[in-house]
């Protein structure tokens, strides 16, 4: 059996509420803390695409941030590429590429400088960097604007820079948090190609989205999260086989609505 590249076991993330947030939630009656993620478990296999679906505020970003070691879980365990992400977060980060839709870039740097910066941070040796850089820049068609300031580039060009930055250290695991949010069809296609390309090269991809079209197009495995709890986790083929409604979108809404009742 192939060992999962991401293994999440019963993770929980509890946030302390500010006074204002407590007031918004109806005072002390609702408590001083909130569980953004409450006991979530799933596993992502190499060479497969795992989609994490959920409405806004479901806990997708918090889950992905815990996997990317930006946030520390209040409980549970995470292994990334075989490394205990809680005990050795830096080892986990070494095999991980992270991209979100909300991330912007350093406007005053050029794509060349930015990608080099991330390669240096990941400790990519000089010779290997040159080879990877040339390969990625050629594949994404970035040479023409490699030395222009990022602030002057179009959204599509910036998206390519983000992808190059994510791939420069050849990560085994890709974690993408609503990476297509706010992008037009052409720029979104860049992300879709990135995900497919990664799968072809045997990488593990975990991506969150609330676009059902993307999920149905790419998913090998799928999980639905709502109010911090996992409502479904399994193979996409099994999910579609057992659907009680006509489409993925309808089925997603049905599961979330049932959980609310």
């Amino acid at each position: 059996m192939v060992l999962p590249m991401i293994a999440v076991e019963g993770i929980r993330k509890t946030f302390r509420l500010s006074r204002g947030q407590r007031r918004e939630r109806g005072g002390a009656a609702r408590g001083a803390t909130v569980d953004a993620v409450a006991g979530v478990s799933f596993a992502c296999q190499p060479g497969r695409i795992f989609s994490l679906l959920g409405p806004n505020g479901a806990g997708k970003t918090t889950t992905l941030r815990m996997i990317a070691t930006m946030l520390r879980p209040s409980a549970g365990s995470i292994r990334v590429g075989g490394h205990d992400a809680l005990a050795h977060p830096e080892h986990a980060r070494r095999v991980l590429g992270f991209l979100t839709g909300s991330t912007r870039l350093y406007d005053r740097l050029t794509p060349e400088e930015l990608v080099r910066y991330h390669a240096d941070l990941h400790g990519v040796p000089r010779a290997q960097y040159r080879q990877r850089r040339d390969e990625i820049f050629a594949r994404l068609g970035m040479e023409a604007f490699a030395r222009q300031r990022i602030g002057k580039l179009s959204t599509g060009m910036k998206q390519k820079v983000s992808i190059a930055r994510t791939l420069i250290h050849d990560p085994e695991v890709l974690v993408l948090d609503e990476a297509t949010a706010g992008l037009d069809v052409i720029a979104s296609r860049g992300i879709v190609d990135l995900i497919r390309g990664a799968r072809e090269r045997g990488k593990t991809v975990l991506f969150s989205t609330h676009h059902m079209g993307e999920a149905s197009l790419l998913s090998d495995d799928l999980a639905i999260i709502h109010e911090g709890r996992l409502l479904y986790s399994g193979a996409y083929a099994d999910f579609t086989r057992d659907m009680r409604t006509a489409s993925l979108e309808d089925e997603f809404i049905r599961i979330v609505e049932e959980a609310r009742v």
């Binding site: 941030r65 979100t100 991330t103 941070l121």
Partner: peptide, 14 residues
């Protein structure tokens, strides 16, 4: 504000 800090924090750096 730019969201670049998130990316920086996912680098294998102390």
């Amino acid at each position: 504000e730019r969201g670049t800090l998130e990316t920086l924090l996912t680098a294998p750096v102390n």
